[in-house]
């Protein structure tokens, strides 16, 4: 059966993101019942029409779901893996008709591009990169950046994905000694790339020339920060970080996200705002995602919390559905949905 979901409620379509209005609209259930690891949304051309599809990732399968009617999805295709499990989907901005996935155990071992053609009913899988890959990010213009460890150093590579899913062009960025934890594009600056390192530094590259422009120490208040968003304004660089290792030490509560400002010219930085859990909310950050001005995080308590980054406070709290806690949460890249996954293979669409 291709339809494995439940229609929860009937609410009108809304294209503007407003977390206060988030409602559970449907549930996608992977029939295999295996553990969910990730979810994403992308455009896919099916029978000549570009559809906003949902991609679900289980340990050994990636599935493509097409919208049927309001709040219903039909599973169109699944790619199966037998040897190496799926670690994450790598969202590619502005790209349709392909999914990028990272496979591995503790570390990423392979990055593959998955293709499926609805007209020819054919599929293809292309191995894009392999090695000991620590961090990966899909960039605009069909580019993918990854950092991998070789015997003697770390390599930072940009691959441009061709129409057939293979690599069209490869470029190396100037390497750094520290392990890179996450990458982030700088909004509005197509040639700038940020990286966060395990030594609490933020590095800036010029993507066009491969130059390493700056290494900025952001302090040891929060270890192992993950960069979710970066933008440049009036000569300053604003960066939204999350803190998986943060403890409850602020008077205002447990910090989950933080906005910091960096002056790239002087390599000086300072905190602008902490996004904490509301008073009385237990738990801390497990996993999260930022889109536009909204941040969403799964907490250890099993709740999803949403912050308006401009207002500076938490605007919605979504309790787990059923007795299963959330495992991950992602904003949809194709519309105003929030996608939340549970370990049992269920994906909930808000």
């Amino acid at each position: 059966h291709s339809i494995e979901q439940t229609e929860i409620t009937d609410v009108p379509t809304c294209d503007t993101l407003n977390p206060g209005n988030l409602q559970l609209v449907s549930k996608l259930k992977n029939p295999s019942g295996s553990c969910s690891v990730d979810v994403s949304a992308t455009w896919w051309e099916i029978a000549g029409v570009k559809e906003p599809c949902i991609i679900t990732a289980c340990e050994y399968a990636i599935s493509l779901w097409k919208p049927l009617d309001i709040w219903q999805w039909e599973k169109m295709y699944s790619w199966h893996f037998t040897e190496v499990p799926v670690l994450q989907i790598v969202p590619m901005p502005d790209v349709c008709n392909l999914v990028c996935v990272a496979l591995g155990n503790l570390e990423i071992r392979e990055i593959r591009v998955l293709l499926w053609f609805s007209d020819a009913k054919s599929e293809n899988q292309v191995l894009l990169s392999s090695g000991n890959i620590q961090a990966v990010l899909g960039l605009t213009k069909r580019r993918l950046v990854s950092s991998s460890r070789t015997l003697c150093d770390q390599q930072v590579e940009i691959v441009t994905i061709a129409e057939d899913g293979g690599s069209k062009e490869k470029q190396f960025l100037m390497p750094i000694e520290e392990t890179i934890q996450t990458f982030a594009e700088v909004q509005g600056m197509q040639e700038a790339l940020l990286g966060t390192t395990i030594m609490n530094n933020i590095v800036i590259w010029n993507l066009k020339t491969g130059q390493l422009l700056r290494k900025i120490y952001i302090g040891d208040a929060y270890q192992a920060s993950i960069c979710h968003k970066a933008y440049s304004e009036m000569g300053l660089l604003f960066v939204v970080l999350s803190h998986p290792c943060a403890k409850e030490k602020e008077p205002s509560g447990s910090p989950v996200f933080q906005l910091i400002v960096i002056n790239p010219k002087t390599a000086l930085s300072m905190g602008v705002m902490l996004y904490c859990l509301p008073q009385g909310q237990a738990g801390r950050f497990l996993e999260g995602d930022v889109k536009d001005n909204f941040a969403a995080a799964v907490l250890t308590s099993g709740t999803i919390a949403i912050w308006d980054l401009l207002l500076g406070h938490c605007t919605a709290l979504l309790p787990p559905v059923s007795d299963q806690n959330w495992s991950f949460v992602k904003w949809s890249g194709t519309d105003s949905h929030l996608l939340a996954g549970q370990k049992d293979g269920s994906i909930f669409v808000y």
Binding site: S232, P264, M270
Partner: peptide, 23 residues
């Protein structure tokens, strides 16, 4: 936050750092 603590700001920081950095 106090902007003065961040030192002199340049709107063209990306171009300036690119011209100063190693090729």
């Amino acid at each position: 936050c106090n902007q003065a603590d961040l030192g002199p700001i340049s709107i063209n920081w990306f171009e300036e750092l690119s011209s100063e950095a190693l090729p």
